[in-house]
Structure formats: structure tokens, C-alpha cells
Amino acid sequence: MILEAFMRVAAREGLHAVSLRAVAAEARISLRLVQYYFDTKARLMQSGLTALENISNERLKARLQSLERSPGARTTIEAYFSVALPTDHESRQFHLLWTSYAMLAMTDPEISDRTFVDGPDRQQERIASLLEKGKSEGDFHRELDGEIEATILISLMHGLGTAVLVGQQTAERAFASFGHYLDRLAGQASGEPCRDQKRSR
């Protein structure tokens, strides 16, 4: 309850406006109760950051459970992108807060910047593993470098997510761009036409 109130305040007013008192008022509980669990603002903010990653993982899990029983590697990567793209209130709040945290971690020594390395590193490892799985299943070209392509895909997710958040790209355009790149991973290395080219024929 406290963390949810914290995220509402931070998303609505910005991280700079967060205080233990403001969070207590948002949650409609006493300041003393907030202080019982989080004795400093830094500790509350660090816990909020961990909660954000957990929420993202739960959204991905729910997304995958809504798909077929054993989704292929490409479908799973597309689910990652779908969850990461800020297209509804929850995903916009996540992207906004994550970006705000990243900026704060560069200037506030009480906010660990390791979270912004460790979290994406874990995601990158999962995507690299999915690319290797996709190579064996025929979703992606067998000669692609999974680690390098995972780095590029993570960058696409973050960059397109920010572009959608600020209105520079539509969600539809972002999905099309991401799908186009996955098509290239499936066929361009072997000289095969990508999926869009095959459809046009």
C-alpha cells in the first residue's frame, strides 16, 4: 500500500516531490506508519525501484500466460516489447518512473545506480537466450550473434519506449519498427527476403 502510494505521487508530481509525509497522505495513513517501514526517503525510493522491476516481471508473466501454451522465441520477445512499451497507464507510469530514477541515480549518491545495470543485464541475458532458442527453432538465422543482437534489441525497447512516451512515435509505428528488425534477424543474414517482402509478393 505504501509503495503503491509512493509510485502514484512520484508519477503525478515527480520524484523530487516525494516525501514520507506526502506518501502517508496519499496512502491515507499516519506518517509514523510509513516511518516504521521506511525510516528514510532513500530507503523508500530504493524499495520503490525494486517494486517497479517486480511489477514489470509480473506484467510479462501475465502476458505470456495469455498466449499459447508454448510460445516460440519470437513471440516471447514480442511479448517483452509489448509489456515495455508505454501504451497504458501502468506501462506509462513504469517508463516515466524508471527514466526519472535513472536520472536521479546519476546525481544522488543514496540511490544505487547498480539497479540500472543489473536489471537490464538480466533482461538482456533472457533475450540472448531466447535468440539462441529461436535459432534452433528456425525463428532466427542460425549465424546471428545472440549477445550482440540482444544488446540492440534492449536498446530498441528503451529508445522506442521513450519515443512513444513523449509522443515522437505512435505505438503502432513502434511495433512495426520492432517487428521489422525481428524480420531482418530471421532472414537478412542468409539473403532471404524479410516477412514484409514475402507478403508483398
Rank of each mutant, 00 (worst) to 15 (best):
S112E: 04
A25F: 04
A174H: 00
Q197C: 12
R126Y: 01
R92G: 00
F38N: 02
I152A: 14
R122Y: 12
G48W: 00
A171F: 01
A189W: 03
A73Y: 04
Y80R: 06
Q169P: 03
R12Q: 15
A186S: 14
Q124P: 01
A42E: 05
E192H: 10
H16Q: 04
F38E: 00
T76L: 06
L67I: 05
L182W: 02
R69E: 15
F116W: 06
S112Q: 02
Q197R: 13
R28Q: 15
E78S: 06
R184A: 15
V18G: 00
A174S: 14
R199D: 13
E172Y: 04
A22N: 02
L96I: 09
A62W: 04
L15H: 02
I77L: 07
L64T: 06
S82K: 10
M103F: 08
A174N: 06
Q123I: 00
G191K: 07
I55E: 15
G179E: 10
E53N: 10
I127C: 04
F94G: 03
T151R: 11
Q123P: 00
F116G: 07
D108W: 03
D113W: 06
V166H: 11
S66R: 06
A128E: 07
M45Q: 13
M103A: 14
A189G: 10
L165Y: 13
S200Y: 11
S19P: 02
E143P: 00
H16D: 06
S82F: 12
I127L: 03
L52K: 01
E58T: 06
S190L: 11
S70M: 10
A128G: 05
R12G: 13
A24P: 06
I152W: 08
C194M: 15
M103W: 07
V34I: 07
R114Q: 14
Q65T: 05
I2V: 12
L64R: 06
E192A: 14
T151H: 11
T107H: 10
G179N: 15
L3M: 11
A25N: 12
S66Y: 03
G159K: 03
G134H: 08
Q197H: 10
L33W: 09
P71Y: 01
R28M: 13
L160G: 07
A27V: 07
C194Q: 14
Y37A: 05
C194Y: 09
E125N: 08
F140I: 12
V34M: 03
R8H: 05
S91K: 02
L156I: 12
Q35S: 10
P86W: 00
D121F: 05
V9R: 02
G179D: 15
A128I: 01
T162L: 11
H89P: 10
V164C: 03
S66K: 06
H95P: 04
P193K: 13
L52M: 12
A42W: 01
R184P: 02
